[in-house]
């Protein structure tokens, strides 16, 4: 048996230097699914135009980008019915801004 370490325990995520801990500091990720919605993961809030929070029903949400969802801002799968097609992702580089 070894003596219990006198050092305080480290939390496991302290060991990751390149990634913040899961929680408030974790960057939100938005993934564009081809011919479909934007999937949003992480800790985020979705607001109405007047600033009210739309309560999230799930951890990962899909946001409409075809414009015809009946559940906006969320996707309801309607993009398939209208044959919605997206551009190749990621988009071509933008021209540089004029200086």
């Amino acid at each position: 048996m070894t003596e219990p370490d006198a050092q305080p325990a480290k939390r496991w995520d302290d060991q990751w230097e390149d990634r913040p801990a899961i929680g408030a500091d974790e960057p939100v990720s938005i993934t564009a699914y081809p011919n479909g919605p934007l999937l949003v993961r992480g800790t985020f809030e979705i607001l109405t135009p007047t600033g009210e929070v739309i309560p999230p029903r799930r951890k990962t949400v899909a946001l409409c980008r075809c414009g015809v969802s009946t559940l906006k801002p969320f996707c309801d799968g309607s993009h398939k019915a209208i044959g919605f097609k997206t551009e190749q992702e990621p988009p071509a580089p933008q021209p540089p801004l004029p200086t």
Binding site: Y33, G36, P37, L39, R57, R58, T60, V61, A62, L71, F74, C75, D76, G77
Partner: peptide, 16 residues
Amino acid sequence: DEHVEADAVHEQIAAR
């Protein structure tokens, strides 16, 4: 109603 929203998320994750 829950499944309209949930499965629109799930189908993307499941397919890809």
